[in-house]
């Protein structure tokens, strides 16, 4: 049950990270900021990616619980969401490693 406490808290943390990241992202995209290269940018992109996937999928998981009532179905959906999130993370890392 500790897990839920952490999840809730981390949803807030990733939210803040995403907010900061997005601001920066938006700035570099549309106002010609610095070129996104180098180890710092790489680290930034990596954290940004993980936060986005965690935040999004954790949100979906929460919503799922409220509308899916059978325990078995909940488990199945949870599995699907986790697999999808992991797959996306893999793809993301692959892209970022260019």
């Amino acid at each position: 049950m500790r897990k839920e406490v952490f999840e809730w808290f981390f949803l807030r943390i990733t939210g803040v990270i995403l907010l900061a990241g997005l601001t920066l992202h938006f700035y570099t995209m549309h106002y010609n900021g610095p070129a996104q290269t180098g180890p710092y940018w790489r680290a930034f992109n990596f954290i940004f990616l993980l936060s986005a996937i965690y935040h999004g999928f954790n949100g979906l998981l929460g919503i799922m619980i409220e509308y899916v009532h059978s325990r078995a179905l909940q488990k199945i959906f949870e599995g699907v969401l986790i697999v999808t999130a992991l797959a996306l993370t893999g793809i993301g890392i692959y892209i970022l490693s260019v």
Binding site: E4, E7, W8, I65
Partner: peptide, 12 residues
């Protein structure tokens, strides 16, 4: 506290 911090507790 244990009775309210599960998935169907506080976080909903």
């Amino acid at each position: 506290l244990g009775r309210i911090i599960h998935a169907q507790g506080l976080w909903r």
